[in-house]
Write a protein that binds this DNA or RNA. Sequence first.
DNA 1: CATGAAAATCAATGCGA
DNA 2: TCGCATTGATTTTCATG
Lengths: 156, 156
Amino acid sequence: MDDIDRIIIDRLQEDGALTYAEIGAAAGLSPSAVNDRLKRLRAEGVIRRMTAEIDPAAIGLGLLAFVLVAVNEPESEVRFREAMKATPEVLECHHLTGDFSYLLKLRLRDTAHLEHFLMDRLKPLSGIVRTHTLIALSSVKETHILSASLSGAVHA
Amino acid sequence: MDDIDRIIIDRLQEDGALTYAEIGAAAGLSPSAVNDRLKRLRAEGVIRRMTAEIDPAAIGLGLLAFVLVAVNEPESEVRFREAMKATPEVLECHHLTGDFSYLLKLRLRDTAHLEHFLMDRLKPLSGIVRTHTLIALSSVKETHILSASLSGAVHA
DNA sequence: CATGAAAATCAATGCGA
DNA sequence: TCGCATTGATTTTCATG
């Protein structure tokens, strides 16, 4: 993981359709050297996969919501986690510090869809003490691009 | 936007390196028909871009945190938004309902990096009344894959 | 959707630090 | 030995009809 890797990672996050030649031009490398590095970065798990970024509204998922969830019984947590993993509306589920144990990020069609999720999916799960729902009015910024140069001095 | 589009979108989110032939096999289409549809989906903005999904820990960004921010002075909001957009640690910034006006999603190296962000980046901004920081202990689920079939009956 | 020319991928090989 | 460049066969893309 050197500066050249970081350039490759940055470029490929911005535009995953770049050719090896284009990446190479940015990184000062031949196309085959880019190929070699990409193979390694994939094998190491640094690059998890290539993926398409979709406009949620374009496929009818115009509502973004976050739900804080307090779960108290430890034996309920396993089932809760499995349910979240299996629910496509749940994009993210993080285990947190603080009085709420989990934060969910949801993409939904509308408020009726949200209500259905809260009432029919979440509430029936045992051990849920309390929830707090936050609805996004707009998104100032939403990316998953990680600035490889932020990592500073790095490992391996 | 029909069922075939939805299959294409689902497949391409799972694996953006699929060839037109592979997508076509899943969707019952010839490679050139897949090409035609992809061109349209890109032109319509349904597919925003192709991108690489990176392991945050692999590039030294092992800490995930969320920060709820209460901003009161309306004229401060513009500057606040611009600052968030310009800060690479901030992956997301959503305008919310509720007593906190914004939710930030951050990727950071460690708690020292978080402290630096809170003290030197966030606090100096005017109009910030209150913040509440949530640290992720682990992530049960984290994806940005939208289930195209969730959209149900759809438009255009 | 079929076709085919142009482009990209990717493995093999050789070279140089 | 490790990483890069060159080469060329194969595969993929993508405009045309």
